[in-house]
């Protein structure tokens, strides 16, 4: 036993938690695994976590969590720098994996949106932001932990898997799967605009369980049938415009990709 302990001490993986533009909520949910936090952090060497540490290294990460979306030049520079130093990069949260709220600008008039905030300021002196995109648009991402905020139990699980050298698994069933296991009365049948059938689960169907419609914070299913999903929602009498606004709340880019796919096939 003693030997293995010594061996593990020598080989403590170097873990970093970095963030770019976002709400810092994903990082917090990582620190909020209260009961096992100290135990878990004892098994790793936390080399970078600017939010709670004063001393941060920027080299040789074994595992690196990155939260937030790329929304400025500096974000991009940092991300590229970190990618070179990281062996296993995990996109933490909805911003990093799908773009989240700030990426909604892709489907709106960008100048109008920006004017609503900085209208009094001359345009040439304004800080010019990049419209937010998730990490995988710029760098290779090894694993995603989606969700807004991500499930802290999932973070714990993934970290434990990685520490044991097991490749983490992706949850790829619809929200409806877990929702029906909880024996909930379907919200769609009650006339509430729920997006459960199209969206990725793994969240224990929290929202539908509390009578709140799913809005898809964990991203769309890879094989989501958007066409028939839309038809179902239309048949229920929901406003199609509103439905698109709902679907694009977290996953604007994913939605745009889905929309552009069939057109390519026609060509």
């Amino acid at each position: 036993m003693k030997k293995t302990k010594k061996a593990s001490k020598a080989k403590k993986p170097r873990v970093g938690i970095q963030s770019i533009t976002g709400c810092a909520g994903c990082q917090l949910s990582l620190y909020f695994i209260e009961d096992v936090l100290l135990e878990l952090f004892d098994k790793i060497e936390l080399v970078a976590a600017p939010m709670i540490k004063g001393k941060n290294e920027e080299e040789n990460y074994d595992i690196l969590f990155v939260e937030g979306s790329v929304s400025s030049k500096e974000d991009l520079e940092n991300l590229l720098k970190w990618r070179k130093q990281a062996k296993f990069l995990i996109a933490l949260g909805a911003c990093a994996s799908h773009g989240c709220m700030q990426s909604m600008k892709h489907m709106m008039h960008e100048e109008e949106v920006e004017a609503a905030v900085y209208n009094k300021f001359p345009s040439d002196k304004r800080l010019k932001p990049i419209t937010a995109v998730p990490l995988h648009k710029h760098v290779q991402v090894d694993f995603y932990i989606p969700g807004c905020p991500p499930d802290k139990e999932e973070i714990e699980r993934v970290l434990k898997w990685l520490l044991q050298g097991i490749k983490p698994r992706v949850y790829d069933k619809a929200v409806c799967h877990e929702c029906s296991l909880k024996e909930n009365y379907c919200l769609l049948d009650q006339g509430i605009e729920c997006l459960g059938p199209l969206m990725n689960g793994g969240c224990k169907a929290l929202c539908p369980d509390y009578n709140h419609p799913c809005t898809g914070c964990r991203g769309m299913l890879d094989d989501a049938n958007l066409k028939s999903g839309k038809e179902i929602l239309r048949d229920k009498g929901f406003d199609p415009d509103l439905m698109i606004k709902r679907m694009t709340k977290y996953n604007t880019l994913q939605f745009m990709e889905f929309e552009s796919k069939p057109k390519e096939e026609k060509k």
């Binding site: 770019i20 533009t21 790329v70 929304s71 400025s72 500096e74 974000d75 709220m101 700030q102 909604m104 600008k105 709106m108 109008e112 949106v113 920006e114 004017a115 609503a116 905030v117 800080l127 932001p129 990049i130 937010a132 509103l242 606004k245």
Partner: peptide, 15 residues
């Protein structure tokens, strides 16, 4: 210096 996210603009036009 955080990248701007323009929430006040994004909310416009939402129900």
């Amino acid at each position: 210096v955080e990248g701007a996210r323009f929430f006040e603009g994004i909310v416009k036009g939402k129900r």
